[in-house]
């Protein structure tokens, strides 16, 4: 469905993206993950035919985005970072205009506008001016705008920015609902979002793909190690030294307070046991000990920033 090959975009001397290659199958939901400025938006803009790559190519349904931009644009619904809204239009008129631009047939205009309004729960505000809508509603109008032509491919650049938690979960449900019918690429730097809706994840950093795999496989990247959360009552100065001296403990991080600690350890039950024992003997006052699953966040941070983000107390 979408095929991207050695895509490069330079802004002057700066490489926004460099030799990006990936492909997305029909009906798949792919999460585009990366820190700010990683090149997510640039890649998406190129796929939509909005801008041309410096080299390499991108194809949607077999059409090259630069050679046949009109064919590509017919098949794509795009929500940019800032929803492209005309403040002086009514929601309904706006969606109708977008549908006309996207080439929806005249007879189907009304029904596609109704469909988009319904899917994004905007029916109650259809007769309101866009400039009077709250940020959450505006974002939803943006999503409705991408949906209105019922495109094969949906490209959503940070679709849940500015929404409240209830709306976020609504949008996630909507994306889940669209799965299968549409091919969806969504970019975000919010990890739970990807975990909630995406089947496959592409992590991109500084314009390069650093990982591309299914969620399970990526989470398993850190297997062999585990994280232990520790909460104690009386921390003492020798705590770090004592704990990191234990067999199997790799690193000790300080938590939010002096009472919370996180440990990177080898994945063995004995390690937990020995930590617990040591804490008891030293009289630190054990309150809680639990093993935290190595989650996507760790993978993400490891891949994009290396390990330098968390302050290492002792190694």
């Amino acid at each position: 469905m979408i095929e991207v090959s050695s895509l490069t975009k330079k802004y002057g001397e700066i490489h926004a993206i460099e030799a990006l290659s990936f492909s997305v199958k029909k009906g798949e939901v792919v999460g585009f993950l990366g820190p700010n400025g990683a090149g997510k938006s640039t890649t998406m803009k190129i796929i939509t035919g909005y801008m041309a790559p410096t080299s390499g190519y991108a194809r949607v349904s077999g059409y090259d985005v630069f050679e046949d931009p009109l064919e590509v644009k017919k098949r794509i619904g795009y929500l940019p970072e800032t929803p492209p809204l005309y403040n002086d239009m009514y929601v309904q008129d706006y969606l109708r205009y977008v549908a006309q631009l996207k080439g929806v047939e005249k007879s189907k205009l009304t029904s596609s506008v109704d469909m988009a309004l319904e899917k994004t729960n905007l029916t109650e505000v259809r007769h309101r001016l866009i400039q009077n809508l709250s940020k959450g509603f505006r974002q939803r109008v943006g999503i409705a705008q991408a949906l209105v032509s019922d495109p094969e491919v949906l490209i959503l650049d940070e679709p849940t920015v500015g929404l409240d938690p209830k709306q976020v979960s609504e949008i996630r449900d909507l994306i889940k609902e669209l799965r299968g019918k549409h091919t969806i690429i969504l970019s975000t730097h919010i990890l739970p979002e990807v975990q909630a809706v995406c089947e496959r994840i592409i992590i991109i950093n500084k314009g390069k793909i650093v990982a591309e795999d299914s969620l399970q496989n990526l989470s398993a990247l850190k297997s062999g190690a585990q994280k232990i959360n520790l909460r104690i009552k009386n921390p003492q100065d020798d705590l770090v030294r004592v704990l990191s001296g234990l067999k199997g403990v790799m690193k000790v991080y300080s938590g939010a307070t002096r009472n919370n600690w996180t440990l990177d350890t080898e994945k063995q039950d004995e390690v937990i046991e020995s930590i617990a024992k040591e804490v008891m003997i030293r009289g630190y006052g054990l309150l809680e000990i639990s093993s935290a699953k190595a989650d996507l966040e760790d993978v993400f941070l490891k891949l994009t920033y290396g390990e330098e983000t968390k302050e290492v107390v002792h190694g």
Binding site: Y50, N87, V98, L101, G103, Q145
Partner: peptide, 14 residues
Amino acid sequence: KMRTFDLLLTSPVT
């Protein structure tokens, strides 16, 4: 300015 140009440029219009 309002970024609505994105809409026009990603629509199938010349």
